[in-house]
Amino acid sequence: MAAIESALLQTGRLDTLARQDTAVHRIDPRAKVITTACFVLLVVSFDKYTVAAMIPFLVYPLALLTVGRVPPGFVLTRLALVSPFAVVIGVFNPLIDHEPMVRLGPVVITGGWLSFASILLRFLLTLSAALLLIATTGFNRVCLALERFRVPPVFVVQLLLLYRYLFVLAREAARVLRAYRLRAIRSRGVSLRVYGSLVGSLLLRTLDRGQRVYTAMGCRGFNGILHPSIPLRFRTVDAAFVFGWCAFFIVARLYPLPQHLGHAVLEFLS
């Protein structure tokens, strides 16, 4: 699957971005995880026809993008690669819901289009928040945060190892696949009969590697718990980050800020 392949390759780029040193990167991973959770929860809690009142929420990803020095094009291309389940499902809304809801002069917008626009906006907001969490924190520090949130060590250990061997195994699979394609020029995919042995042998090598990794860890005294050597410190800045953003989210959730702003400006003009 080309999408997965290029996504995997780009994941290395995400890692590089995460190793930058900016104000956002320096925020404690726990603070960013909490803030992201609050953000997603509040975005999702909007009424299905909401579009305008959700706009202020764009400020958060925009802020992370700029202060965290993440190229916007990078986030957008990654969103384009995403499995479009939400969009596919959302596109039915305009077909089903014909109730006119908004009138702008002669143009009437139906509830279906409104809720579809809302779905697209939710899509953009929630997924960019997840990507930016990684781009400004890095996977390992997110894992560290999980450990501090008392997630069981066995889960954290295998999560770290999964990430670690993602690239190694992806390269291995890519090599196998390249070798196959060079000798099977016409076929679109691997034939089912070959697939069993091709993926099976990849799996056997993976099992062997699992054994070797376990042995190597055992040789250095591993007993099921990783000892993080980077201490995490939750500073005042981190608390301020959490409270500041969450307060903003809640205000934006309770009051349709763009609406108020628009009214105020129109009143001032008239």
Binding site: L160, L161, Y165, R212, R220, H227, P228, S229
Partner: peptide
Amino acid sequence: DDQLFMPSVREEVAFGPLNA
């Protein structure tokens, strides 16, 4: 690749002593 699994070289080298 079988032996190096920690996020940074420093943590990698510290892995054994910390376990000890």
